[in-house]
């Protein structure tokens, strides 16, 4: 050996990996949140469910766009596939939404496969890739709007059942069960996120994001792992579609496939921290209640905000302002900035 090695460095123990800590936090989060419905009034519980829904959507977006580096501006495509698969099977065929969810997951993953192979086959990157994802979502929106198969622009109402039923995923509006299902799906999303990143496939996806040529030179089939990342992300997003349908009992093409839904998947991750495990969750906690806070403010504004009385859309304005502030002040998001500060100590 001609190189000089430092004996101290040579015996240095390998640093601990973060995975078991992430899994532990996930478990703690699940246990802590289970009793939450007992503490919340119905209005607050509705906010909590929306927070969880945002979190699931953004965890999904973060897998593809944060860890996979494939910017999606059309995540509504996968959301809508989940919602519509569930709605169509339930309304037209009388199939349980749980099965609808599973079918939606499979179709969304296959859709991501086609989308990924096409987009990556032509080596689309950055803004061009993002535009293709938007185009795919818009394509589905237009198809749903014009197809008799899925009731055109009318969409679907979930038929109300006389009694609560787990099989039909339908409960009284203020039932804690919706919260438990949403919580379960978010915990599932976190587990998918953590276990995927820890796996060989996830590590290859990160390498391919960082530098696809260098990855290929090491023998990593870059396109295969990028497409796989998209499929995992799409599958998770589809479950959010089912949850949305069963909780709000209604879906139409603009809700399901519109870009507003895609943006709601992006914002929590951007605000909380892109390409971090916890960023989407933290972002969802910040953004979820905003709509209600602004709505309350508009209904009953304090004297200095009198001019706002009765107007709508304040939440969108606040979203925008918040986004600008976060991007300027905390470009790595809330969690990203906190993590950097901790690790610098």
């Amino acid at each position: 050996m001609t190189t000089t090695t430092q004996p101290a460095a040579a015996t240095k123990a390998l640093p601990k990996l973060p995975w078991s800590r992430h899994l532990l936090v996930t478990a703690v989060l699940a246990v802590v949140l289970i009793p939450l419905p007992m503490l919340l009034d119905p209005a607050a519980e509705a906010v909590a469910i929306r927070v969880l829904l945002f979190a699931i959507m953004s965890i999904s977006w973060n897998i593809m766009s944060g860890f996979g580096g494939l910017f999606s501006f059309g995540h509504a495509a996968f959301f809508g596939i989940g919602a519509y698969s569930t709605a169509w099977l339930q309304v037209e065929k009388g199939v349980s939404p749980w099965i609808g969810m599973a079918v939606g997951v499979v179709i969304a993953a296959l859709f991501a496969l086609v989308m990924g192979v096409l987009a990556l086959r032509y080596k689309l990157k950055g803004a061009y890739f993002a535009l293709v994802t938007l185009a795919f979502a818009e394509m589905l929106r237009l198809w749903a709007t014009n197809s008799d198969l899925v009731n055109r622009a009318v969409g679907y109402h979930v038929p109300l059942r006389p009694e609560e039923s787990w099989w039909w995923m339908q409960f009284a509006p203020d039932s804690a069960n919706y919260f438990f299902i949403a919580l379960g799906l978010m915990i599932l999303g976190l587990l998918v996120s953590i276990l995927f990143l820890r796996s060989r496939a996830g590590q290859f996806a990160l390498a391919a994001r960082d530098d696809d040529e260098a990855s290929a030179a090491l023998g990593i089939p870059v396109v295969r792992y990028k497409v796989l990342t998209m499929m995992v992300s799409a599958a998770l997003m589809a479950t959010a579609g089912t949850l949305y349908l069963q909780y709000y009992l209604f879906i139409d093409p603009d809700l399901a496939f519109g870009s507003a839904m895609s943006i709601q998947a992006i914002l929590p991750a951007v605000i909380g921290g892109v390409a971090t495990i916890w960023g989407p969750v933290i972002g969802a906690v910040v953004l979820g209640p905003l709509t209600d806070i602004t709505a309350t403010l508009l209904r009953n504004p304090p004297p200095f905000l009198d001019f706002l009385a009765g107007r709508g859309g304040l939440d969108v304005v606040v979203y925008g302002i918040l986004l600008v502030i976060i991007i300027l002040v905390l470009p790595k998001g809330i969690y990203g900035a906190l993590r950097d500060r901790w690790s610098r100590r």
Binding site: L206, A207, R209, D210, D211, E213, A214, S215, A275
Partner: peptide, 8 residues
């Protein structure tokens, strides 16, 4: 031109 995986 060196091409490390920058996030790692």
């Amino acid at each position: 031109l060196m091409r490390p995986f920058y996030s790692m």
